[in-house]
Simulated assay, not measured.
Amino acid sequence: MTYPVSRRSLLALSAGLGASTMFGSSALARAPKLGTEPSYFYRFNLGSAEVTAVSDGPLALGDPKGTFTGVPDDELRKMLSDNFLAPDNVVLEQNSPIVNTGDKLVLFDTGLGTAKGFGPTTGRQQKSMAEAGIKPEDIDAVVFSHAHIDHIGGVVDEHDKVLFPNAQFYIAQSDFDYWTDEGKMGGQWKDFVVHARKNLMPVRDRLVFYKDGQEFLPGIQALAAPGHTVGHHIFMISSEGKSFAYLGDLSHHPVLLMEKPRMEFSYDTDPKQAAESRVRMLDMLAAGRIAVLSYHYPWPGIGHVVKTAEGFHFIPQPMQMIL
């Protein structure tokens, strides 16, 4: 006799409950809950280079209404719920790659650091690096995709001491000039300017300005993708014929800004230019089948971009736990 799926599921559930009762609760008490967090790093090889992704912790944006614009609110919520995501609380990750080329140890972006405007779960990059066995004094280069608060916030500690004493720092000059401009202190971006100045001015004499298309470090090429900020860049990282693109903030969400890449994002300096950059770069990455690592995608943010009829789709890459 063939049973409907719903009845089979009910019978399986009953059997499971029976087994739990048979073994009793004392079996569970033998192994108390540990309540400890796993380490927040992931390591993989890229040609002869070694890449370690570290996290600054989850960043809660809250309700998508007003942050993601250009699409009706009910459609936004449906897009999220259809992908098993909370429709009323968008949570982003903060994934930074650290690339060991053999000659240089290069960190991309530094998280929110001491800034707590996006909740208490951020600011753990230094802890993640320690879990990965990487010391801040061993970092040779810190590369900023742009100067927003969640990318430059971890240069100094709570006492304004620079955390990377031996590093050279790299950024687009247009972004440095824009976000350290004291004339913007009275506007909507006040907190962003305050934290940019707090973290970038102490290393001003160690800043190097990269340019679009420039391979400014061996195997690391900057590609301009403006709009999110005036000087936002993504980076092609290559070693022995293998490569991936670090996307920075090209796309903040793996569903909303992929399925509808021309949707606008309220934190963009120029939302329409950001959308143009997003479509142009995602087209290139999809056509070239180039792996990507996105700063704000679900941990560890690694995967591929594929073209769809209306936009794009992000396919996460399975984590390889054996190097």
Rank of each mutant, 00 (worst) to 15 (best):
T2R: 12
T2K: 11
R8Y: 13
G16T: 15
G16S: 12
A19V: 09
S20R: 06
M22N: 03
L28I: 05
K33M: 14
L34P: 00
F44Q: 13
F44E: 13
G47T: 03
V51Y: 04
T52P: 10
L59I: 06
K65N: 10
F68Y: 15
T69P: 03
M79S: 08
L92H: 05
D109W: 01
M129Q: 09
E131S: 06
I134Y: 09
I134A: 07
I139D: 00
A141V: 04
V143H: 02
S145T: 10
A147N: 09
H151C: 09
G154M: 08
V156F: 01
P165V: 03
Q168S: 14
F169E: 08
Y170D: 10
A172T: 11
W179C: 02
E182M: 10
K184P: 15
W189T: 07
N199W: 01
P202G: 15
V208P: 01
D212Y: 13
Q214T: 06
L223M: 14
L223A: 12
H228N: 15
I237Y: 05
S251K: 05
H252D: 02
L256F: 09
M258E: 10
K260D: 12
F265R: 07
S266H: 05
T269C: 02
Q273P: 08
E276V: 15
R280P: 03
D283R: 12
D283W: 09
L285P: 07
R289H: 14
I290P: 00
V292K: 00
L293W: 04
P300F: 00
P300A: 00
I302W: 00
T308S: 13
G311I: 07
L323T: 04
